[in-house]
Design a protein around this nucleic acid. Sequence first.
DNA 1: AGGAATAGCTGACTAAAGTCAGACAACATG
DNA 2: CATGTTGTCTGACTTTAGTCAGCTATTCCT
Lengths: 291, 291
Amino acid sequence: MDVVRGFNRTVTQRVGALDDKFLARDRPLAQSRLLWEIGPAGAEVAALRNRLDLDAGYLSRLLRTLEAAGLVVVTPAEGDGRVRMARLTEAGRAEWAHLDRRSDELAWSMLAPLSVGQRDRLTTAMNEVQRLLMASMVTVEVCPPTDPRARACLRAYAGELAERFESGFTLDTDDDQQFVPPAGVFLVATLASEAVGCGSVRFEPDGPAEIKRLWVSGSVRGLGVGRRLLTELERHAAAAGADCVRLDSNRALTEAIRLYRSAGYEEIPRYNTSPYPDHWFAKQLHRAPGV
Amino acid sequence: MDVVRGFNRTVTQRVGALDDKFLARDRPLAQSRLLWEIGPAGAEVAALRNRLDLDAGYLSRLLRTLEAAGLVVVTPAEGDGRVRMARLTEAGRAEWAHLDRRSDELAWSMLAPLSVGQRDRLTTAMNEVQRLLMASMVTVEVCPPTDPRARACLRAYAGELAERFESGFTLDTDDDQQFVPPAGVFLVATLASEAVGCGSVRFEPDGPAEIKRLWVSGSVRGLGVGRRLLTELERHAAAAGADCVRLDSNRALTEAIRLYRSAGYEEIPRYNTSPYPDHWFAKQLHRAPGV
DNA sequence: AGGAATAGCTGACTAAAGTCAGACAACATG
DNA sequence: CATGTTGTCTGACTTTAGTCAGCTATTCCT
């Protein structure tokens, strides 16, 4: 714990302070930050509000200021006329490039005083910290399968399976109700308000629960999100009274199968007639209290 | 470089944002920050101004506010009546303890979502990053040997040698002039405006330069500060026209001797009559341009 | 003892950051 | 096509942060 606190202290001092300085440039900080966030690709106003966590009115005013300075144009988005799109002008892009350069200089100022060996060690450790911090930013929560985030996950899930299975894949969007309490549970994993994984479990009265649609986005694979989802699903199953969970999988999904085995699942004979799976697993649950 | 930038981004998002929040507590941030910095041990006003990098007037006003809220008392320091000491009252200590608890919670919130193995890896990597960032925050600069920072280093240096040498040690404060350009150079290593190391070199017309008083504070030992000082001193010697540097040491200073050897110094016969050293080293310099 | 220097304080400001309550247009829905 | 919703904007604020010049009380220096 002291390590974490020491880290926080040093890092906010070193990175935080300099990070503000790199944006400072006669313009107030909030404006620079906004300009930086819009980026060369542009961004929707709502996305900016979300990412920078700003009051709608305040953001609007900031955009007006940048617009008056000729750095930004705000136009209605195509499709929905209420949504507005902020884009950098030529001058804005130049300004952004300048900030980008300063950001690079900042990064270099952290490496420059070190020896070559130290630089290597630092970047390696930074990489590790960054990945693990991302992992710890992922939250897992119950969510109705009709929620837009859940839909996005299922779309990605189906798309991926369709690509990886020789036979293709079509998700039967049949009965979402089976994943709504009390019949079952649908979980979504979120990173910075973006859905990066999902999983669901369907309870069977007096029978084994079944886990389905476990999926993790490629952007966070290897961070233990799959395992967290799986553990949570088992907890829900146990809380609903199940003493066994089972699931099916396909030989193309090697990482998933590895996860199941290492989580204590054992292969069992076919228990359903679905055309896609060729492996079936089950795991005994230890009845645990609480949800 | 991209690693560093990615790290900065994630870390300011995760640590920076939360770190501000942990101080937020109906009171404005600057006040909380100040209270936090004063700490249960109290602090001199000048030290606070230095650490938080605040305007003198602004800081004074903040202290008045905290005083009015009954959290802090400011009293003249004993010894020097101009210097003032800020201390927490009972209520202030309670408030500080609360912040301390929140800081712990914050730290925990970073570890909690991770598996045990991940936690280990994260703390290890954080430790590494923190140490190396501290190393990269150290600056080395030329400084007159009469400067208070130089004096502080020399005092620490002499104290340490006195403790480690069987025979004791007395620094001959004789001729500081030999370390003032053009006769020589005195370097000080600074971390967060605190002197953490020093070293000096004396040029000899048409002869080998001599490095003396190389010292690194225990708080930053192992971060490569000694090597940086040594390299800088050699650069100055080369720039002043020397093609060889020498120095003496004592067998009690094992780390220093290890440093000299690994930096390319070779043992030579006694070249002076000082009573303290029992090892003498020299290194050939490659004439390099620039200071 | 008589300046010069040091450490901190006060008053009078300015600018940046942020909040809140409406207003308004575009869209969604029955 | 009337009604509610969503996304953004504007005006009218308040609070926080920070700056600057001049002032006072100690202490240092000679």
